[in-house]
Design a protein around this nucleic acid. Structure first.
Lengths: 226, 226
DNA sequence: TCCCGGCGTCAAGGTCTCATCAAAGCGGGC
DNA sequence: GCCCGCTTTGATGAGACCTTGACGCCGGGA
């Protein structure tokens, strides 16, 4: 299901969007100010963000920058101000589209579809199943098998393994892991990674103390080797 | 350089866009009808397409579909018609953005930047490999190979090698290396460079004492030669 | 010729990062 | 309200990495 984060401080706008989007099968999350928006984005990992610029607490451009620091999720800006300079500012800050209030719901929905389509335009070469000598990761089904038996992973464990598997062969910086699994506020909690990598190795590696697939690169990050 | 394909049958619009875009460093190609647009897109592989909907020969939506059949290049639609249905049709056909004439040049340029940014933001499968006769550097995976075996580098070693590889063929000043790898406070710790360059040569050069790729320019800096 | 600055090499510490275990919070389901 | 699984936090030992100093080499200039 596609998740949409709606950020606006006007209840009637939020309500209208919630009704329309829910009716079309979107999973709708809402936030009423910038701080809540950043928090909600980190938690719910939306597929697209609809952001009003006139928020009570933080300037809209700052919200965009806060999001862009760690995610490339499409951002559609809503604004009552149609000034060219506002548009330029928002777009250059990292927004993907800019819609002026009052807006037609049809148009907004079409722009939303376009944004989501772009965002999910899948790198065609992606394999849904990543297999190593010791275990297999099914990225589509979110399942891991080892010796023909399914291995149960917690949500956090899966988040880490998925990110590593999608970037197999490549080094993934610890900061990236922390930001994409825990959220942008956790960039320095490297201890979490050590604990969870140890858990994953215990569950997946033949010799957890001598990992062959979940490799540590001291001071840099982790790497998934086939 | 970023290539923009402008498709419009009104000469004054084409002219205005050409002037503005060229002045900002874009490589501008033009087409005056749908057939020419499809041909030009196939030939010049633009990074973004600006497409007017009111073309003399083919309906705009068909042009979009014709492009979408084989490319995901961002398409910004220009149109004199602001009808909601037109917008929905174009966006659902595969356009990325829709701007109504008359439009502000600032805004169009900002939307163009946003579209290009998105288009180039996905270097997911990017092959950034720098190869020499003795070893290869994979900038994306942060891996170095020599004689078909992976060479392990420490974070500092990698930082130096990456900077040199990204500036291969060019001289990189000692001060720049020190500032970008260690930080601005270390501009004069040239001894660090000597130690680490020696380590890199020992790991990568066939004859470490006679370097062929990691060259010292006495008193100035270092150079990565292929 | 001698001197000297810049460079290359090596090895010994001290520091930072990592792995592991265990126990304390926390929240959702029953 | 209680229990159980998951997450967070703390403590400790081991290992990787960085820094630092010493020494020899080379080439240019006095």
């Amino acid at each position: 299901m596609t998740t949409v984060l709606v950020v606006d401080d006007e209840p009637q706008i939020v309500r209208a969007l919630r009704i329309n989007l829910t009716a079309r099968g979107y999973d709708v999350r809402t936030a009423h100010d910038g701080a809540a928006a950043l928090k909600a984005a980190a938690e719910s990992k939306p597929d697209v963000v609809v952001l009003d610029l006139g928020l009570p607490d933080i300037d809209g451009a700052e919200v965009i920058e806060g999001l862009r620091g760690w995610t490339t999720v499409p951002i559609i800006v809503l604004s009552a101000r149609g000034d060219s300079t506002d548009k330029v500012k928002a777009l250059d800050a990292g927004a993907d589209d800019y819609v002026t209030k009052p807006f037609g719901m049809d148009e907004l929905l079409a722009r939303l579809r376009a944004a989501v389509r772009r965002g999910t335009a899948t790198p065609a070469t992606e394999e849904a199943v990543v297999a190593t000598a010791s275990f297999t990761v099914d990225l589509a089904a979110k399942k891991v098998h080892r010796d023909n038996a399914e291995v149960h992973l917690t949500p956090t464990e899966w988040g880490i393994l998925e990110l590593l598997a999608r970037n197999r062969g490549r080094l993934v910086a610890q900061k990236q892991l922390l930001q994409e699994v825990w959220g942008p506020a956790y960039s320095n909690e490297t201890h979490y990674l050590r604990v969870y990598l140890a858990q994953l190795r215990r569950k997946l590696e033949p010799e957890p103390s001598r990992p062959r697939h979940l490799i540590t690169e001291a001071g840099m990050g982790y790497r998934f080797e086939l």
